[in-house]
Write a protein that binds this DNA or RNA. Structure first.
Length: 464
RNA sequence: GUCCCCAUCGUCUAGCCGGCCCAGGACAGCGGCCUUUCACGCCGUCAACGGCGGUUCAAAUCCGCCUGGGGACGCCA
């Protein structure tokens, strides 16, 4: 079986995580079955569509690693094609011209509502045999009775009575096709076999199936994935903070973490939580998709991100962290030093932003270093400073100021005085980093160098 | 209002062609271990089948109703 899927966003905003997830599912299905994944821009809404958003969506797709086959299709370039198919429907008697105005149709809907019925067009022009004319649109002549039934990949069998549907407009009075018409024509022309899209499209599907049938096209398989809800269970919106893919990118998330998280939100493979892209391609066959809506949990996303940050080769991690470090205003940083910092701090950061921020105390001079007041009070008291004073000459004697010798010097002092590391290390840490955090002390001191390390210790001593 | 869809720990989920489930994993929380800090890691712990009926020897698993949630009802996409 050959499989062709597609992702068809409308450029009225950035790529949203909901859209990203359907794109990923579509991409995975195509890759799994060694089929094709296509891309289409649904830009028929001239008012809201912007080139800026098309560019942004493209950039996000690339960032996520979603590649597609063939040219990108733009609906605005296919107006004549849609027109041809509408004419075909008109000619075959599957569609008719309608002269009802928007006001008249609104009135019909109100009337139906009043009767407790579904608001719908009542078929006023259906048998009038009208021809083209100013202000006239074309409507599909829907069957009067029967059911539209389809087997959804995620929801199972869905059945709707055609009585629920009305004769929908397929060509507006300005000559442009409506969404449902354009989608059907495009999906058919692009050879789409599996349509994966958001839950909010289920009610469009029976309408589209009617168009497929009227046109004599083969109906593809549909898969409607549930929406992603905000942490509070409400529909995801601007109020919930970051929700566009680029925002997560700016927050220092890794694409593989986002992909892993999004895929796992609504799809599962037993108890497995971590999946490489290769594994996903191998495992994702369109089954085991959860039919119910899921809430977005940024904590789990960050946990995954931390996981991937630990696994990345340092060179790669450093390369990805560089722009974030630059945003912190650290100034020039050699690859080597950046990589050292990354290995030193990667285990305690969950995002690239956090990682870059954690470098701060290491990239200041002793003069610029600020001590955390609470830490000063607790660790840099008389006793702590006394240790530092005695430690100073020990470190001064270290010729090769690298982790091992530094550690030896520290050890010699601790053991020579019959102390415990617990008594000495905390004040030293306070002096070196300014707060009770950071990485392995000797590593940090080696990174700072002898001069800076000693200057920090002297500065701490001077606090008294 | 009408139609469609959904319903397992706080969250994501496994299980759902009935018994192996007094429900498993993960995140978060809590407790502990490790420890030259903080993390990481490891160990442990808390915690759920929305309600009511039915079918059955047996139901989280099948059926019905109810409740709750979501979506749709455009000459938007």
């Amino acid at each position: 079986m050959s499989v062709t899927t597609r992702f068809a966003p409308s450029p009225t905003g950035h790529l949203h995580i909901g859209g990203a997830r359907t794109a990923i599912f579509s991409w995975l299905l195509a890759r799994h079955f060694k089929g094709k994944f296509r891309f289409r821009i649904e830009d028929t809404d001239l008012q809201r569509s912007k080139q800026e958003y098309t560019d942004s969506i493209l950039a996000s797709m690339q960032w996520l690693g979603l590649t597609w086959e063939g040219e990108t299709t733009y609906q605005t370039k296919r107006m004549d094609v849609y027109s041809k198919y509408v004419d075909q429907l008109l000619a075959s008697g599957h569609a008719y011209w309608c002269s009802c105005t928007a006001e008249e149709v609104d009135a019909m809907r109100e009337r139906a509502k009043g009767l407790g019925l579904k608001p719908r067009y009542d078929g006023h022009c259906r048998e009038l045999g009208l021809g083209p004319g100013e202000g006239r649109c074309v409507r599909l002549k829907c069957p009067l009775q029967g059911k539209v039934v389809f087997d959804d990949m995620v929801k199972g069998r869905i059945s709707i009575d055609v009585a629920e549907l009305d004769d929908m407009v397929i060509r507006r009075s300005d000559g442009t096709p409506t969404y449902n018409m354009a989608v059907v024509v495009d999906d058919h022309d692009m050879g789409i076999t599996h349509v994966i899209r958001g839950d909010d499209h289920v009610s469009n599907t029976p309408r589209q199936i009617l168009i497929y049938q009227a046109l004599g096209f083969e109906v593809p398989t549909f898969g409607h994935v549930p929406m992603i809800l905000g942490p509070d269970g409400a529909k995801l919106s601007k109020r919930h903070g970051a929700r566009a893919v680029i925002e997560y990118q700016k927050d220092g998330l890794l694409p593989q973490a986002l992909v892993n998280y999004l895929v796992r939100l609504g799809w599962s493979h037993g108890d497995q939580e971590i999946f490489s892209l290769e594994e996903l391609v191998e495992l994702f066959d369109g089954t085991h998709l959860n039919p119910s809506a899921a809430r977005f949990d940024s904590r789990k996303l960050e946990w995954l991100n931390g996981h991937y940050m630990k696994k990345l080769p340092v060179e790669e991690l450093a390369r990805l962290t560089r722009p974030f470090a630059e945003d912190c205003g650290y100034g020039a940083l050699s690859d080597e030093r950046l990589q050292t910092l990354c290995t030193l701090f990667r285990d305690r950061a969950r995002t690239l932003v956090e990682l870059a921020a954690s470098f701060a105390p290491m990239l200041k001079t002793a003069d610029e270093l600020e001590f955390d007041p609470a830490c000063v009070e607790k660790q840099l008291n008389a006793e702590g400073r006394a240790h530092l004073e005695k430690l100073l000459p020990c470190f001064e004697q270290v010729v090769d100021f690298s982790p091992e010798p530094i550690n030896e010097a520290l050890k010699a002092y601790v053991e020579g005085q019959g102390l415990k590391f617990k008594q000495v290390a905390p004040p030293l840490r306070a002096a070196i980093v300014g707060y009770m955090g950071g990485s392995h002390l000797p590593d940090l001191m080696a990174f700072l160098g002898k001069e800076d390390s000693l200057a920090r210790i002297r500065k701490a001593i001077a606090l008294g």
